[in-house]
Amino acid sequence: MPSQPSTPHAANERLARTLCCAVDGAGKPRHQVAREAGMHKDTLLRVIRGERPITLNEAAGILEACGAPVRATLALVLAGHEALAAQWMHHEMGAFLEEFFSALPGELHEALGDRIGDLRPRWAIGTSRLVARMLSKHIDEFADRDLSLAIGR
C-alpha cells in the first residue's frame, strides 16, 4: 500500500530518489549514465536530486542506462512501492517482475477471453496473494528437487 501522498510532486520525489539509487548502483560514472540516457550530466544531477521534473521517457532512459528493469521499477514507484523498487532493481526480483508485467496482460487475455468483464477489482489482492503463495511453493519444490538430486549422487 502506498504510504506517501499521490500528488505529482510527491511522485516526482519518489521517482528522483529511485533514479538516484539506480545511478548509484549502476557501477558506472554519472557522466556515462547521462550520456547513455541521452542527457547532459547536469540535467541528470538535477533530476536525481529532485530539482527538475522527470518525464517517464527520461526516467526510462536513466533506468535503462543503469541496467535496471524499466517497466518493473516504474510500476513499483508509481504504485507507491519506492523501497521495493530500489531494493529489487538490481536483483533477480526486478528482472522477474519485468517479465511478469510484460507477459501478464496477454496471458490474462488468452486465459479469460470474453470473461474479462466478469473480473472484480476486489479480487486483485486475493489473487496477488494466491500467485505469491504459488511462486513460493514452486521455489520450495525446485529446492527440494535439487537437494534430493544432490543427495542421490
Rank of each mutant, 00 (worst) to 15 (best):
P2K: 11
Q4S: 13
S6H: 10
A10T: 06
N12W: 00
E13I: 13
V23P: 01
V23N: 03
G25F: 07
G25A: 13
G27S: 02
P29Y: 15
Q32W: 08
V33I: 14
A34T: 07
E36Q: 15
H40A: 14
H40M: 06
H40V: 11
L44Q: 08
R49F: 04
R52G: 10
P53Y: 11
E58M: 13
A59W: 05
A59D: 03
A60H: 02
A60Y: 01
I62C: 02
E64C: 07
A65D: 05
C66L: 02
G67E: 06
P69Y: 12
P69W: 10
A72D: 02
L74P: 13
V77Q: 07
A83P: 12
A83G: 13
L84Q: 15
A85Y: 00
A85K: 01
M89H: 07
E92D: 13
M93F: 11
L97K: 07
E99D: 10
S102F: 11
S102W: 07
L104N: 06
E107V: 02
L108S: 02
G113D: 01
G113K: 03
D118S: 11
L119Q: 01
R122A: 15
W123P: 01
A124R: 05
A124H: 05
R129D: 06
A132D: 10
K137H: 14
D140R: 10
D140V: 00
F142W: 01
A143R: 13
A143W: 06
D146P: 06
D146H: 11
